[in-house]
């Protein structure tokens, strides 16, 4: 019986509208709107207590929202929870595996619970154990696994049912480079991934799109580079051909009034002058000034701000831990 009340979710993997959830006086979700395209890897970035986990728990039917609607793979979170559970995989903050069972026993059990036949459950279990390099540890009790191994087993367990949408709640805990690679590989395989993180580096490495969440609201949304560009702050790095020209170059730029907003800095080690640029016009003017003065340049690059800086500028406060992620470099055509 189709009802006209239900909004069409189109081809979206996840569609969330006006989601609200209170825990007593605390507002965990304060009107979240979110669209995720099928096959996208969306990073939900936010500090502790921003509402990331609550969002994932609502989308995986563990928590009922107080208001709002949410569709995952076309299923209503509130009205079709069982059908929805057939399409999702969840890897929570705590590895959800049975520590008393071995790796293979865990995966076999999940397979049986997902209605695989006995031989299929066994086959799928060993396939995923191999894929996550756990074949040697297959017979060992999961309680004896290292953090990274347990995380991989947890991820394997989430993939047994070939989910269309996979949630990774704070996968940082024990997500080793190998597992990250696996997560990224799934991107090309049509699995929609929604991952939550408070680490810039992780979001940058794994996600193709970002949603920044703070105090229960999505406050920014876009591609990783798009979001960085939105902040509109770039850093220009100029390397004169002759390192001796460093200070005269800085003086000239100051004289042209182009570096008024933020301090120009020398970086003697790399032989560059670092200029924070506020706008495209300023960038153009700066390059023009350099040409007018006939300064011979060896290199000129602009750097996008790190996600940490993005977060700071959209929320007004820093994330828990700042990462020294290598910034993306962009050659400026001269």
């Amino acid at each position: 019986m189709p009802t006209s009340r239900a909004p069409a979710s189109g081809a979206l993997a996840v569609k969330v509208r006006g989601l609200i959830k209170h825990y007593g006086p605390t507002t965990a979700l304060d009107g979240v709107d979110l669209d995720v395209r099928p096959g996208a890897v969306l990073g939900v970035l936010g500090p502790n207590g921003a509402g990331k986990t609550t969002l994932v728990r609502v989308l995986s039917t563990l928590v009922r929202p107080d208001a709002g609607t949410a569709y995952v793979a076309g299923c209503d979170v509130l009205r079709q929870p069982r059908q929805l559970r057939r399409t999702i995989g969840l890897t929570g903050q705590y590895a959800s595996v049975d520590e008393k069972l071995s790796g293979i026993e865990n995966l076999y059990m999940i397979g049986r619970l997902l209605d695989l036949s006995r031989p299929d459950a066994r086959r799928r279990a060993s396939e995923l154990l191999e894929r996550f390099s756990l074949t040697e540890a297959a017979q060992r009790t999961a309680g004896t696994y290292s953090g990274g191994m347990r995380r991989r087993l947890d991820l394997a367990a989430s993939l047994i049912g070939r989910p269309a949408v996979l949630y990774l709640d704070e996968p940082t805990t024990g997500l080793d480079p190998r597992t990250r690679k696996e997560v990224r590989r799934m991107v090309g395989e049509g699995v929609t991934v929604l991952l939550t993180t408070q680490y810039m580096e992780e979001a940058e490495q794994l996600a193709s799109e970002l949603a920044v969440i703070d105090r229960g609201k999505i406050i920014a949304r876009g591609g990783v580079s798009e979001l960085k560009a939105k902040v509109g702050r770039r850093t220009l790095r100029i390397r004169p051909a002759d390192p001796l020209h460093l200070s005269s170059l800085a003086t000239e730029l100051d004289a042209a009034g182009l570096t008024g907003l933020a301090a120009t800095a020398f970086d003697r080690e790399t032989g560059t002058v670092v200029v924070p640029v506020q706008s495209d016009e300023q960038l153009t003017a700066l390059v023009g000034t350099l040409a007018a003065h006939g300064v011979a340049l060896a290199d000129i690059t602009t750097e996008l701000p790190t996600l940490d800086e993005v977060f700071l500028s959209v929320t007004g406060h820093r994330t828990g831990i700042s990462q020294d992620a290598a910034p993306a470099h962009q050659e400026v055509a001269a």
Binding site: M1, P2, T3, R5, A6, A8, S9, G10, A11, A13, P38, A73, G74, C75, D76, R79, Q80, Q83, T87, A164, T192
Partner: peptide, 8 residues
């Protein structure tokens, strides 16, 4: 993704 089955 399974076809949209709204209201089902």
């Amino acid at each position: 993704l399974p076809a949209i089955q709204q209201g089902e």
